[in-house]
Simulated scan of single mutants.
Amino acid sequence: MPYTVQGVVARGKGQAVSLETIRVPDPGPGEAVVNVQACGVCHTDLHYREGGINDEFPFLLGHEAAGVVEAVGEGVTGLAPGDYVILNWRAVCGRCRACLRGRPWYCFDTHNATQKMTLEDGTELSPALGIGAFADKTLVAAGQCTKVDPAAAPAVAGLLGCGVMAGIGAAINTGGVTRGDSVAVIGCGGVGGAAVLGASLAGASRIIAVDVDERKLEWARGFGATHTVNSRETDAVEAIRELTGGFGADVVIEAVGRPETYKQAFYARDLAGTVVLVGVPTPEMTVELPLLDVFGRGGALKSSWYGDCLPGRDFPMLIDLYLQGRLDLAGFVTEKIGLGDVEEAFAKMHRGEVLRSVVVL
Rank of each mutant, 00 (worst) to 15 (best):
T146L: 06
L159A: 07
T138E: 05
D121V: 08
D136W: 02
K147I: 09
L129N: 15
G130N: 09
A151T: 05
L139T: 06
V164H: 00
D109M: 11
A135F: 14
G176L: 10
A151N: 09
D181W: 01
D121C: 13
F134S: 03
G169Y: 01
Y106N: 12
G122F: 13
G130A: 09
G167S: 05
R179G: 10
L160N: 00
V164R: 08
T114C: 12
L139S: 09
G122P: 05
G175W: 00
K137G: 14
G158I: 03
C162T: 06
G143V: 08
T146H: 09
G175I: 01
G130W: 12
D181A: 01
M165N: 03
F134A: 03
I172V: 12
V156E: 08
T138P: 00
A155G: 04
G167I: 07
A133K: 13
G158M: 02
L119G: 04
G175A: 08
K147S: 03
V164P: 01
A142I: 08
Y106Q: 13
I131G: 07
V148D: 06
G163Q: 11
G180F: 08
N112Q: 14
P150T: 10
A155W: 00
P127M: 09
I172C: 03
A153P: 10
I168A: 00
V177R: 02
G175R: 00
P154H: 11
D136G: 15
T118W: 13
V140F: 04
G169A: 05
A166P: 05
L139G: 04
V140W: 02
L129H: 12
C162E: 00
V177M: 06
I172M: 11
F134Q: 04
R179K: 14
T146N: 07
I168D: 01
V177N: 04
T178S: 15
G143T: 08
G167E: 00
A151F: 03
F108Y: 08
G167Y: 04
L159I: 08
T123N: 10
L139R: 11
K137Q: 15
D109I: 04
T114V: 15
N112P: 00
C107R: 06
Y106W: 09
L139Q: 13
G176W: 12
P127R: 11
A133C: 14
P154F: 10
Q115L: 12
D181E: 01
A142K: 03
C107L: 13
A141F: 11
V140S: 05
A153R: 10
T178E: 13
H111W: 10
G169Q: 05
A166L: 03
Y106D: 12
G161L: 00
T123Y: 12
A171V: 02
F108M: 11
Q144P: 07
C145Q: 05
A133P: 04
I131Q: 11
A170Q: 08
S126H: 13
A151M: 03
A128D: 10
G158T: 04
A135P: 15
M117F: 11
G180I: 01
P127T: 06
V164T: 04
T178A: 15
G161Y: 00
M117T: 12
A141R: 06
